[in-house]
């Protein structure tokens, strides 16, 4: 089933008829050579959506409904089997892997459920990591990272390593990292999944605050998170069943 969603001049991110199929047992080269008739699983089936600047869109659904797959596709971390994605005026599906990486660096900030901070770097270093690819000077990276850590309330924790931070602090560092390149779109995958309710509330506050001039897509099955969204799309078995 395909659900049509609105699209206008303010739309920063949109996808149309997005489908992603995975073939079982096709990870290894040997399995690819040995079998031509493998069963496939449809993780996402004809999904369409559009997110405007300043809008927070929630993606709801049970585990396995396709929320993470959708976010990975929108971030250019994965390639769709069918359909198109447009991000900041660029057709993502027409880009090479290198082009998608560049687009992600320039326009997308990603917040993961498990934070994925680099344990060898300090909070400041983690926030500054994307700027290395941008070729920013060490001083510029440091200033930008410290400014963002101040914004998320961790100015005094800049030199601490991730294992010296609580779960909530780590997620705030991850949010600061997602914002460090000043992206147009922030994609957050279960951002409160590993946090207690009080900490989760603070993280959600932060995420909705940054939506002022960007588009935020929030995948979660946490009602508290979804209540903060301007609208919520409900996914089940890879299809949007309700575009609210």
């Amino acid at each position: 089933m395909e659900t049509e969603t609105r699209s206008n001049d303010e739309t920063l991110l949109s996808c149309r008829s997005l489908t992603r199929e995975y073939t079982r047992g096709a990870d290894g080269w040997l399995s690819r050579v040995r079998s031509t008739d493998r069963p496939s699983v449809t993780a996402l089936d004809g999904v369409s959506l559009a997110v405007d600047r300043g809008e927070v869109v929630g993606i709801a659904g049970p585990s396995g409904s396709g929320k993470s797959t959708l976010l990975h596709l929108l971030a250019g971390l994965d390639e769709p089997s069918d359909g198109t994605i447009e991000l900041a005026g660029t057709d993502v599906t027409a880009l090479s892997g290198r082009g998608r990486t560049r687009l992600r660096l320039d326009h997308v900030g990603v917040v993961f459920q498990r934070f994925y901070l680099l344990p060898s770097l300090s909070a400041r270093g983690n926030v500054a990591v994307p700027l290395i690819q941008r070729g920013r000077s060490k001083r510029a990276r440091r200033d930008r990272a410290e400014s963002l850590l101040e914004t998320v309330g961790l100015g005094d924790r800049a030199a601490h390593s991730p294992d010296e931070l609580s779960g909530g602090e780590q997620q705030r560092v991850a949010i600061a990292r997602a914002l460090v390149t000043d992206p147009d779109v922030v994609l957050a995958d279960e951002p409160t999944g590993e946090l207690d309710s009080a900490t989760g509330e603070r993280v959600l506050e932060l995420l909705t605050e940054v939506a002022d001039d960007r588009a935020v897509v929030l995948a979660s099955h946490d009602d508290r998170a979804l209540r903060r969204a301007d609208r919520v799309l409900h996914l089940r078995d890879g299809q949007i069943i309700d575009d609210g």
Binding site: G97, R98, T101, R104
Partner: peptide, 12 residues
């Protein structure tokens, strides 16, 4: 970590 760096926009 390498995978995360790639996801954050680092080129290969």
């Amino acid at each position: 970590e390498l995978s995360v760096l790639r996801a954050l926009g680092w080129s290969r």
